[in-house]
Simulated scan of single mutants.
Amino acid sequence: MLSKKLTIMNPSGLHLRPAGILSQTAMKFKSDTTIECGEKKITAKSVLNVMAAGIKCGTEITLICEGPDEEEALKTISEAIENGLGE
């Protein structure tokens, strides 16, 4: 299991478009990907769960990847978040 703390930089938070990109990126990997935001634990592969979490700009999250390709998953998903998820 690998984890990394990240800050959401999208001006509108994780609304439909960035949540969709995040989920699509997570689905490329076999590893389970979880986002911890405060007390919430969100499955990153579910766009509805990511959107429902209501993660706003400036929120610190912990990205957790666990599985056979966890290193590559953590690196790729982290980079996508750091680059603004297409925004």
Rank of each mutant, 00 (worst) to 15 (best):
N49T: 08
M1K: 10
N10M: 02
T62Q: 12
Q24Y: 07
T76R: 07
G20A: 12
A53D: 05
I55Q: 02
N10W: 00
T7W: 04
K40M: 08
S12I: 10
G20N: 08
G58Q: 02
A19C: 02
E60G: 10
M27S: 14
S46P: 06
G13D: 05
A73P: 03
P11D: 12
T7K: 14
T59N: 10
G86L: 03
A53Q: 04
T33L: 15
M51L: 14
I61Q: 04
S46K: 06
I55W: 03
V50T: 04
K28E: 13
P68A: 15
C65L: 09
K28L: 14
C65K: 07
S12F: 11
L16C: 11
L6K: 04
G20M: 05
L2H: 10
S46Y: 08
E66L: 12
L6N: 05
L6W: 07
L14D: 00
K40T: 02
G58M: 01
K45L: 06
E72T: 13
I35N: 01
P11S: 13
E39R: 04
K40S: 09
G84E: 05
A53H: 04
K56T: 14
A53R: 02
K45T: 10
K56V: 10
E70G: 02
N10L: 04
I35W: 00
P11Q: 11
S78C: 10
A19G: 00
I8N: 06
S23D: 06
K41W: 01
G84I: 06
T7V: 15
K30P: 00
V50W: 01
P68K: 14
E70P: 01
I55V: 13
E39N: 09
Q24A: 14
